[in-house]
Design a binder for these strands. Structure first.
Length: 506
RNA sequence: GGCGACGUGGCCGAGUGGUUAGGCACAGGUCUGCAAAACCUUGUACGGCGGUUCGAGUCCGCCCGUCGCCUCCA
């Protein structure tokens, strides 16, 4: 494939990617709700669209990448009914809701930075766009696709369905939705139809996050923020909307409906918000879904530190990234310690290969061209491009890098004696490999700081053990020599009844 | 039950109907005082049953199983 194709959830097939207004591309991705630490699911979604972003940039597009931050509290459905998630955490931790949101936003950013994600161009917050959301609700009301009840405003799905098609994204039809939810809840709700959803919700007295509106004090419904913020920064119709498959229904379905109801009066002007809807698949743990109730919801922070009962060790952020990229984004991905350890080793080997590649000096060597090697390196970039063009198949790109690795190793090994490929081929390949590794996949050589700490700890333990043996044997000359020479390196030893501690001191 | 995505060798995972995905593990080899690392080489597969086809992991049907959604959580 010499042109980029993407799988569009809206049409359920791969389509040639053709921006609405080249060279500009607008991309909106559903970001995190900042009331808790980011987990693998957040990582997968963010990394998936980081790849899309990077690749489009590399293709020369001017991309405006918007990823929202949901910091508006909404209702939970368990025992804490009536309290928003953000609020609930605030009470627990005696913090302001916005303080909670900021804290988890910071943590999210920290984790994403660690995995080498490019930051979006705009990260709009729902709470920063309340007036725009109110305005959008008003517009939808004016257009006759919503109704107000007791200070809340609901989207009128059946009314919308008369003119537009509700359910086109998720493949549902209204009758089925109605049939499925008719049994209970009816009558308890202010909604006229079970499929209707809130655009604006009246705040209960104890709801902290609240704003004035034409319908009284309240807060926006879940779906409206994305419609509003995408419209504000990307226009009523833009190129790509991304998110996890779990958001397909009802969130994205509702977004499409809101967008059409708000920005178009008639079906002939239908825009469906975005041209391409991209969805990444979910992550499981040893075949099971992740969830707090199952005890296997592991935060990224815990992966990075290894501080979780289910984790055998710590996994570096880039190993997590690499692991995620080894699968195609539309497949479910199962993780386990063995799977991650496999990725860790593979990633290490790739890094070693890259180091060797950078160390190879092709100049002035005897050339005895190996046709297979030559061919391998020459077709590398085109192969990788074809895989990326095929709906961002990073798994195949990585496999292709491993296919080239033996050649790199051979060239490295034979250096100084023979050089089995044309120098120009080699130079172009090296450049291409860098492009794929750094620019497309967003990988980078592991910083060895963390490893070095471990190494130093290990070294110190060995030294201290040797010294302990020397002291036991009353070999004071050796034990003092160890202490004095360490001291010269600003490493101080302190003998305690429980053993010997060490620390840095200038 | 409905909608969607899937079920590939010991594990993770690509796969556009016809000849090797790849990684990890395992095995053999090179190197090595021994070992490790590194490098080289190799084996093991397509959930089940039918169907289409000269030929199916790849298309069609049914069955079984997994995951997500179907909630005013976002």
């Amino acid at each position: 494939m010499d042109k980029l194709s993407v799988y569009n959830s809206l049409t359920r097939k791969k389509e040639l990617f053709e921006p609405l207004n080249p060279p500009f591309v607008g991309m909106y991705v559903c970001g995190p709700t900042v009331y808790g630490n980011a987990h693998l699911g957040h990582a997968r979604s963010a990394i998936t669209f980081d790849i899309v972003y990077r690749y489009l940039l590399d293709q020369g597009y001017k991309v405006r990448y918007v990823r929202n931050i949901t910091d508006v509290g909404h209702l939970v459905n368990d025992a804490d009914e009536g309290e928003s998630k953000v609020e609930k955490q605030a009470r627990l931790e005696q913090l302001e809701p916005m303080e909670v949101a900021q804290r988890y936003y910071n943590a999210y950013t920290r984790d994403m930075d660690a995995m080498n994600l490019l930051r979006p161009g705009i990260e709009p917050r729902a709470t920063g766009h309340i007036p725009e959301q109110i305005e959008a609700v008003q517009k939808i009301l004016e257009h006759g696709f919503a109704y107000e009840v007791n200070g809340s405003v609901y989207f009128d799905v059946p009314k919308y369905h008369e003119k537009f098609q509700y359910g086109k994204l998720s493949g549902r039809d209204l009758e089925q939705i109605l049939a499925g939810s008719r049994s209970d809840l009816e009558g308890l709700s202010e909604k006229r139809h079970p499929a209707d959803f809130a655009l604006w919700k009246k705040a209960s007295p104890n709801h902290i996050m609240r704003w004035n509106s034409p319908w009284g004090e309240g807060f926006p419904g879940w779906h409206i923020e994305c419609t509003v913020m995408s419209t504000k920064y990307l226009g009523p119709k833009y190129d790509i909307h991304g998110g996890g498959m779990d958001l397909l229904f009802p969130h994205h379905e509702a977004e499409i409906a809101q967008s059409n109801a708000c920005n178009c009066h008639q079906p002939e002007n239908m825009q469906d918000e975005a041209k391409y809807w991209l969805h990444n698949n979910m992550i499981t743990y040893e075949g099971q879904k992740m969830g707090k109730s199952l005890g296997n919801a592991i935060s990224l922070e815990e992966f990075f530190s290894g501080n979780h009962p289910l984790l055998a060790q710590a996994y570096s952020p880039l190993v997590i990234r690499f692991f995620i990229l080894q699968a195609h984004y539309r497949s479910t991905l199962d993780f386990s310690n063995t799977a991650l350890q496999a990725s860790e080793k593979a990633y290490k080997r790739l890094n070693e290969g890259l180091k060797r590649l950078d160390g190879i000096q092709p100049e002035g060597k005897v050339v005895a061209v190996n046709e297979a090697f030559e061919q391998n390196l020459r077709t590398f970039l085109d192969d990788c491009r074809a895989y990326m063009n095929d709906d961002f198949n990073t798994a195949r790109v990585i496999a292709r890098m491993f296919d080239a690795l033996p050649v790199v190793n051979q060239l490295y090994k034979a250096q100084g004696k023979t050089f089995a490929v044309e120098q120009e081929t080699f130079r172009q390949f090296r450049q291409a490999f860098h492009k794929v590794f750094y620019d497309w996949l967003g990988l980078k050589a592991e910083t060895e700081e963390g490893q070095q700490h471990e190494v130093i700890d290990g070294l110190m333990k060995i030294i201290i053990d040797i010294r302990a043996e020397a002291r036991k044997a009353k070999n004071w000359a050796l034990s003092d020599k160890i202490r004095d020479e360490l001291s010269a390196l600003n490493i101080k030893l302190e003998d305690t009844p429980n053993g010997t501690d060490w620390y840095y001191e200038k």
